[in-house]
């Protein structure tokens, strides 16, 4: 299988400290890859480096075998869609117009969106379940609704590659499941490729074909969920351990803290 997007031994420094070091990553067509790791592991930085938004001090990022920085920006944008972690909405634009911003890389100079673009927008809105919100101003929506509108905007690009940074944050369980199923279908059924940053390890193991576990700026493990999410690795990287079956207490989460000092996942 080909790898349209690839990072080879990339290094990113911030204030002289490496944030990513010798990271290899490949995204193949048709797969949905979960990018996981504790806070500060470098997930967002890796995503931005893959998009060409983050300059690398060593190594390189290749999009269809060409260095990412050599791409003409709008050609790159048609191949590589990005859903940032904190979506901005500077103005109270109507949802439909907001979603159609995803079509910008496709527009001819000085032309508005055409029929193809409008179809793509309505497909994306249906996929993210925001069709009913089409005429609402985007700033008047709830956090979860806004997250879905941002997803629709990213889907409207209809790029072969989609990089999404914590798209499930702020979504209710129903829309989380729906979103993950949608991303998996995008990869499996439509032949695209998806990288999704996740904190929900259950969702990650359920919906992703492959997981890439980052820890302290390096790849700790990369492979099918079953081989990545071993109890030893979870303990070493996250400081959590899977709960035994059956649950000895009435817990909602299937894991618990190993010790008090590492309870908050921000403490690391």
């Amino acid at each position: 299988m080909t790898a349209p997007l690839e990072a080879r031994a990339i290094r990113v420094e911030r204030g002289g400290r490496p944030v990513l070091d010798r990271v290899d990553f490949a995204l193949r067509t048709g797969e949905c890859v979960g990018l996981i790791g504790p806070n500060g592991a470098g997930k967002t930085t890796l995503l931005r480096a893959l998009l060409g938004l983050q300059p690398v001090s060593a190594g390189r990022v290749l999009l269809e075998d060409r260095p990412i920085e050599a791409w003409e920006p709008s050609a790159r944008a048609r191949r590589l869609a990005y859903l940032p972690q904190q979506g901005g909405q500077a103005w109270p634009v109507r949802v439909e117009r907001f979603v159609s911003l995803g079509r910008l890389p496709h527009l001819e100079p000085w032309r508005g969106p055409g029929p193809t673009d409008r179809e793509a927008v309505s497909r994306a809105m249906a996929a993210a379940d925001v069709t009913a919100l089409a005429d609402r101003p985007v700033t008047a929506l709830s956090g979860g609704e806004q997250a879905r509108v941002h997803l629709a905007r990213a889907l409207a690009v209809e790029a072969p590659l989609l990089l999404a940074d914590e798209p499930t944050a702020g979504l209710d369980p129903y829309h989380q499941l729906q979103l993950m199923a949608r991303l998996r279908a995008l990869a499996r059924r439509d032949g695209r490729a998806v990288v999704v940053v996740l904190h929900d390890l259950t969702a990650a193991s359920r919906f992703c074909d492959r997981l890439c576990l980052l820890n302290a700026g390096a790849v700790a493990a990369d492979g099918p969920p079953r081989t990545v999410l071993t109890p030893e690795r979870l303990a070493a990287v996250y400081g959590v351990t899977p709960a035994p079956h059956p649950l000895p207490e009435s817990a909602v989460l299937p894991w618990r803290c190993i010790d008090e000092t590492r309870r908050d996942d921000d403490a690391a």
Binding site: L53, S74, L80, Y82, Q86, G88, V93, G102, L104
Partner: peptide, 10 residues
């Protein structure tokens, strides 16, 4: 409108 990173990605 979408913020700087999203704009650059477009």
């Amino acid at each position: 409108t979408l913020g700087e990173d999203a704009a650059r990605s477009l």
